[in-house]
Amino acid sequence: MNIFRLVADLMHLGSILILLLKMFTSRSCAGISFKTQALYLIVFVTRYLDLFTHFVSVYNTFMKIFFISSAGYILYMMRVPLKDTYNKHLDAFRWEFLLGGAGVLALVFTHKYTVIETLWTYSIFLEMMAILPQLLQLQRTGEAETITTHYLFALGAYRALYIVNWIYRYETEHHVDAISTMAGIVQTALYCDFFYVYFTRVLKGKRFKLP
């Protein structure tokens, strides 16, 4: 564990807490993509199957359980108590392509053809693209509530810090995982446009609005 990874994980944890705060305070899930949230649940469940086979640390186990359960709870919130505030028409990304595409990539690139290993690889490729429905929704609306942009910023920062963590691990432990690194760079690149608007508008106290 290094400082970059620790801060990244805490940003990830923080992003989920911000999302829950948004839902609780505004009693609404407007602006949030159900598809992206559902993809994250699939990502966590397929990646953390090793909860049952491989113990890393109490920290690691706690975080895995938190990510799976919070993702499930968010879906429940969006489907049951906040159902009326969800706009299906704005959440129009064809996510079948993401689910299928990640499957193909996993079968091609997996390190080993075992169930756990292939599902792990699937989760990496699915996470790489899971934010796309959310970004499409943002593009369609052209603007977003400030708290939603803080959520997205924390999520993007978590990904960016993981890249720094891999560079650090490469320097210190000579560890590198080509799949994680490649997918992580693509995933972080998807946030570029968002980061630009976030830094030039939201951090200067203005509303998030696409040009």
Partner: peptide, 10 residues
């Protein structure tokens, strides 16, 4: 390389 090196990550 079996890819398990980084599986202590989340």
């Amino acid at each position: 390389q079996d890819g398990h090196q980084l599986k202590d990550e989340l």
